[in-house]
Structures are given as structure tokens and as C-alpha cells.
Simulated assay, not measured.
Amino acid sequence: MIKCITFDLDDTLWAVDPVIEVANERLFSWMQANAPLFVERHSVEDIKGRLRTKVVEASPHIAHSVTQVRLAALEAGFLEAGYPKEQVVDLVEASFRVFYDARQEVSFFEHALSMVEGLKKEGYQVGAISNGNASIYKVGLGHCMDFQLNADEAGVEKPHPDIFEQVLAAQNLRPEQVIHIGDNPVADVQGAAEVGMWTIWVNLKGEKWPGGPKATADVTCLSQIPVAVASINQRRRACL
């Protein structure tokens, strides 16, 4: 039977772009008061674009981690702005904390929280597998999720099989005991399916499937997920 349900977070349980936009605004407001030279030289687009590209090209081994890339981009930006190296360490730490805290202020999609809470109450083990750096404990999911693993911690990002296999090993699960749920046809559906997990595609925009092996099930509203989980569980029992 199905024992565990894992979720992607960004754009599956909430829209991430508005969250990042507000977090960047909060960051630059802090910088205007605490690091004006950075603001004089750089824009938000520089952090997301030129500075990010610069650090990823110089350190491709950190490309999987949005946290490490953001930290490196901030460091590069402060140095370019003329801050001394001994001051940059503290500025990077403080500015990232401002961004990171704001990044946790999410607005759940309709039915998201009650749906996850309901699955937990049904007795499923519930967790998160994400490429981003949202914390289940800071966004308000700690009471209904048992664990999480993100790309920074795993050392790889979805759809790499290692991130899924690390969860299986850590939770002592077989892939056929797990349903992974997410919005990305490649990172979530393909990645999880390739290690043998069942999959549910969250398609809130009603888009056409882009091609390739389809998910086990798909939903256009998060309220449909419990029924999809029950259906997969029934299929799983039939295979035993």
C-alpha cells in the first residue's frame, strides 16, 4: 500500500514568483539603509541575471543550490560595489537573512493546507522534496509534514534521481510505496517516475501535457488530490 506522499513546494502549494518579488523588494529596502553602495551599482535584475550567471559560470558545482548561488551572487555584488572583504562576510549574512525570512512568507493556493492536513490525518507519512529553499517549518507546514529534503541538502536538484533516492533511503521506503506530487512535468513527474514512484501532476493552469511519459494521475485543483491518492492506492493494492 501507499505509505508516503511527497510534495514539491513552489508553484505546487503556492505561487513562488510573487514571494520572490516581495523578498527582493525587502532585500533592497534593507540595502538602501545598510548597504547603499550595492543599490547604487546593482539592481534586482543583476542578482537574478548577471551576478547569478557570473557565479554559476565560476562555480558550476553550486548551480543546483539556490541558496549557495544567492549567497555567492550577493558576495560578488558587494565586492563589485567596493566593500572591503572583511565587511562583505557580515553583509552577505545579514542581507541573505532578510531575503530568506521574507521568502518564507507564502500564500497557499486554495485547498493546499487543508489537503495536506487531511492526508496526514489519514495516516500517510507526508514530506517535501524541493529544489527551492522554502522551509516547511517556517511557511506553516511543520505540523502536517514529517520531513523535507531540498536540492541544497541533497547536493543535486530534481529531476536527478539521487534526491528522490535519498528520501527513500532516509525514510526506509520502497519507491512503489510513495506518491510524489508536483507541478513540473520534468523535475517532478519524470524525476520521480524514473526511480519508480507513483506521480500526480498538479496542473492548476489547465495546460496540455508537454510530451513524454504521463503522470499516474493529474489534477487541476488541489482539492482533487485526496481522490487521486485513493485511486492510486487502490491500483497499488491490485498489484499486490
Rank of each mutant, 00 (worst) to 15 (best):
V178K: 00
C239Q: 14
I200C: 01
G206C: 09
Q148H: 14
V139R: 00
F164T: 02
G191E: 06
P213A: 09
F96A: 06
Q87C: 07
K138P: 02
L37M: 15
R97P: 01
K208Q: 11
N184F: 05
N184G: 06
A33H: 13
R70K: 14
L79Q: 10
L9I: 07
Y83A: 10
P18F: 11
K48G: 14
S59P: 03
T67M: 12
T6M: 07
S223K: 09
I47E: 01
N24G: 14
A193T: 05
F78C: 05
D152G: 10
S107R: 12
E105A: 15
H42D: 06
Q190D: 08
Y100G: 03
M31C: 12
E165M: 11
N203Y: 08
E80V: 12
A76E: 13
R236L: 13
N133P: 08
P36V: 08
A76K: 11
M31R: 06
I200N: 00
Q171H: 06
V69T: 15
N233Y: 04
E45A: 11
P161G: 05
C239Y: 12
A193G: 09
W201F: 15
V92I: 12
K205G: 14
G49A: 09
K208W: 08
G49T: 07
W209V: 13
V92W: 03
G212Y: 14
A63K: 14
Q68R: 12
D46M: 03
E45Y: 09
N131D: 12
I200G: 02
V16Q: 11
W209Q: 12
V66T: 13
V98M: 06
T12E: 02
T67L: 15
L204C: 14
G155V: 07
R236D: 07
N172K: 10
A33T: 14
V219Y: 00
Q234G: 08
I200E: 02
I47A: 02
V167I: 14
R237K: 15
S107H: 13
V56F: 04
P18V: 12
V66E: 10
L113C: 08
D162E: 15
I179A: 05
E207S: 15
K85V: 13
A81L: 09
